[in-house]
Design a protein around this nucleic acid. Structure first.
Lengths: 248, 248
DNA sequence: GCAGAACCTTGACCCAAATCAAAGAGAGCC
DNA sequence: GGCTCTCTTTGATTTGGGTCAAGGTTCTGC
């Protein structure tokens, strides 16, 4: 995935961390100049830690390529994923000095970072950027709360179906989406990472995937390449009424 | 609880929905005047719905007294609480037209509301208000994610201990807090509401409370009045390392 | 092409919490 | 005082998903 795919609207703002046309389009030359001057790239290998919970975090960033996860752990090692960052997602918290969760790369990862202090200064001077950040944070809050419903009340089967639906919606290549409900994509997570996201064990994840395969709800090629022949049927298994957006 | 308890710093700003001294103190006369001109009070009886998920929500508000909850439901009726609003908590989403969850009063409830459109206008013109809103939203996001850890990975016992700890921290009357780890408070929720918050059934909640009582971790007078003789001992049961802030 | 390491699947068994059921405890009301 | 309604407790039973264990698949590096 290239920067153009991520920021389709405004090539002059290809690395703008505020991933939204309304804002990119509204950034003036001076603002873009500031962003340009404070940005730098960092890449990570699969499995590498981007930052530990509690560490000082002096940047905000957009994911350019690869997958990152946010996780929290209990001291005995039980871990719960609390966020999944796909390309074009934003991470970082203006006004916060320390990272509140572990951020790690689950695949090779490229991030476009911006130094936090000057970014905050720009934000504080630039109302539409602050507004956009508020909106993004509200989106994340909605997702987190929808995930609370999943964690607290859904069965293992429903959890799996929900996760597959989210990944499909985010990842399925556009051309294949057109074909009447058929979706093809690669799972970006190991069984263990899925389990940590869903509040299950990896064995249960594996069993549910096998069940979906057995029932023809999904087709698997290798361990990661998934075909969903009928997306509506998958959605039916997810348990929530109607659409239920859930991104990020 | 009086407005003075809620907004201890700035009596002239007693109804400011941005519950933070730094912001109240920074509101100038004109801003306070705007807030004053767009505010109104609404009261609800215990059990009453404040707003249904999906309905148009044309106000933002502070809880003045009583308890409100945010809940989400699956279409078969399983429900999950995703937020608990105690006095001084803020609810509402600048920039969003529709309520994303059910908001209901679990006790008699008084809210101080502000019409949304003029509130947004004020926010867009007033950088420190937008910043404060962003900060509050980030706090809520952190709480939501901490709750995800609870829902996904904690045992029933740990869940109950965590909930008691949160309510104790928020509600325990200040004088009693001084007494070496001893805390006294009233549970603001029915067993069923606790269950919805914790992703459990009400029977399990009841059993865990009985267990804590039997072991002397809490003392109960009636069904709601709780004494925690040793707060650290309760915290030990909650499973999370060290402090783990978790508010609203 | 082989060895080792990750990662994944499947089976057998178990247990924490759900479900089903019944009875107790208050609170409000006549 | 007794009646009803809601909330809560407790017991008996069931079950979904966890745990433990044993192999199976890929992938990587040599």
């Amino acid at each position: 995935m290239t920067p153009e795919d991520i920021h389709p609207v405004s090539p002059s703002c290809a690395d703008c961390p505020i991933r939204h046309r309304a804002v990119c389009a509204r950034c003036d030359e001076r603002e873009l100049g500031v962003l340009e001057s404070i940005k730098y790239y960092r890449s990570f290998e699969a499995g590498q830690m981007v930052i530990w919970s509690g560490d000082k975090m002096d940047f905000v960033a957009s994911v350019v390529s690869g997958i990152a996860t946010l996780t929290q752990t209990l001291e005995d090692g039980r871990t719960q994923m609390v966020g999944l960052l796909l390309p074009s997602d934003f991470v970082g918290r203006p006004g916060r000095e320390f990272a509140p969760y572990n951020i790690s790369a689950t695949t090779d990862l490229m991030m476009c970072c911006f130094r936090k202090k000057p970014f905050e200064d720009l934000m504080f001077r630039t109302p539409h950027i602050a507004q956009r950040l508020l909106e993004m944070t509200l989106d994340e809050l909605d997702s987190a709360r929808e995930w609370m419903l999943l964690l607290g009340r859904k069965t293992a089967r429903e959890k799996l179906a929900s996760l597959l639906a989210i990944v499909a919606r985010r990842d399925a290549s556009v051309k294949l989406r057109a074909t009447r409900g058929r979706m093809i994509f690669d799972l970006p997570l190991t069984r263990e990472a899925m389990a940590d996201y869903l509040g299950l064990t990896l064995e249960t994840v594996s069993r549910q995937i096998s069940a979906f395969k057995r029932e023809g709800i999904i087709e698997l090629e290798g361990k990661r390449h998934v075909t969903v022949p009928d997306f509506d049927r998958l959605l039916n298994e997810a348990g929530d009424d109607a659409d239920g957006g859930m991104l990020s």
